[in-house]
C-alpha cells in the first residue's frame, strides 16, 4: 500500500484561461492548480491543448482571458525569460538543446539566471568571473553526477544519441534550480529501458530536490505510475481532474480516448 503523499499549498494556479489564435480556440476556460511538491500530469489526445497550456505557463502565449497565479502572486504578461527568473524551467517536446555547445556548457547555460558578474569582470575573467564560474560548475557537476552523464561532459551535444540528449535537456532544466519543472513529453520516442531510467530520474528529482513537476506524457502506464494528480484535456476543454484512479474510471475520459461521438 502506497503511503499518502503530503503536498503544500498551490504553487501555480491557472484560472479560467482561454486562448485563441484568430478564429481557432486552442483553450477554453481551463482551470487547475499545481500543488507544491507534487507531480502533476497533463494528458489528452493529440491537439487537446496540452502544449498550449505549457506555453501559457512558460510565457510564450498570453491568454486572452483568465489569469495565471504563481506562488500566491498574479502574473501579468511576462516574457519567457522573466518567467525563467521566477523559477520555472521546462524541457521541450522536440529536443531544444544548444547543439554547438558541450554538455557542460549546456548545463552551465541553465544556470544563467543565477550568474551575476558584469561585463567588466567577464572581460577580465580572473577574479569574480572565474570564482563565479567555479561556484556554478560545482552545482552543475552535482547534476552531472545525478544524471550519470560524466563521460559526455565535454562532448558537443549534437553528437549524442537521442536518449542522452533528452537526459541532457532534463539536466539543463535542473541546473536552473527551479521551483517548478515543466516536462513536455520527456519520454517521447524512447525505448522501454530509457523510459524506466527517465521515470526514475523524474521521481528522484521530485524526491531529492523537492521540485514540483508538471509533465505531459502519452504513455499512460508512465502517467498513472508517476503522477499524483492528472488533468485531462480534450478539444481545449478540461474533461477531468483528479487522482490517476479517479481519472481512469471517468466516463468522459474513456469516451475521449476511445473516440465516442460527442452528440
Amino acid at each position: 500500500m502506497m503511503m499518502q503523499r503530503q503536498f503544500g499549498e498551490a504553487m501555480l494556479e491557472v484560472k479560467n484561461i482561454s486562448l485563441s489564435f484568430g478564429g481557432v480556440k486552442a483553450l477554453t476556460d481551463i482551470s487547475f492548480d499545481i500543488l507544491e511538491g507534487e507531480i502533476r500530469a497533463i494528458i489528452g489526445p493529440n491537439g487537446a491543448g496540452k502544449s498550449s497550456v505549457l506555453n501559457v505557463i512558460s510565457g510564450f502565449y498570453h491568454p486572452q482571458e483568465g489569469e495565471v497565479w504563481f506562488r500566491g502572486k498574479k502574473r501579468m504578461g511576462l516574457k519567457p525569460h522573466e518567467v525563467a527568473k521566477q523559477g520555472i524551467a521546462r524541457t521541450f517536446q522536440n529536443i531544444a538543446l544548444f547543439k554547438g555547445m558541450s554538455t557542460l556548457d549546456n548545463l552551465m547555460t541553465g544556470r544563467i539566471t543565477h550568474m551575476k558578474t558584469n561585463l567588466f569582470w567577464q572581460m577580465l575573467w580572473k577574479g569574480p568571473a572565474e570564482r563565479e564560474e567555479i561556484e556554478h560548475r560545482e552545482k552543475v557537476e552535482r547534476i552531472i553526477d545525478f544524471l550519470e552523464i560524466q563521460s559526455i561532459r565535454k562532448t558537443p551535444v549534437g553528437r549524442l544519441p537521442y536518449g542522452l540528449q533528452k537526459r541532457v535537456e532534463l539536466g539543463r532544466a535542473l541546473a536552473a534550480d527551479s521551483k517548478l519543472l515543466l516536462l513536455d513529453e520527456p519520454m517521447a520516442g524512447m525505448n522501454l529501458e530509457e523510459k524506466e531510467d527517465m521515470s526514475r530520474f523524474i521521481l528522484d528529482v521530485n524526491d531529492e530536490f523537492g521540485t514540483t513537476i508538471a509533465l505531459i506524457e502519452h504513455d499512460m502506464g508512465v502517467v498513472m505510475d508517476l503522477s499524483d494528480r492528472v488533468v485531462v484535456l480534450d478539444y481545449g476543454r478540461k474533461l477531468a481532474d483528479g487522482t490517476p484512479d479517479a481519472v481512469r474510471s471517468d466516463q468522459s475520459v474513456i469516451d475521449a480516448y476511445l473516440g465516442v461521438s460527442h452528440d
Binding site: A96, F98, D105, L119, Q122, A176
Partner: peptide
Amino acid sequence: NLTRGRIGRSWMAIRDMDIAAEIIGV
C-alpha cells in the same frame, strides 16, 4: 574571456536555439 563565460554562453544559446535560450532565462 567573454566567449567562455556567461555572456558568451548567452550568445551561443541564442545562436543554437533562440526559443530554448529564452526559456532558460536569456
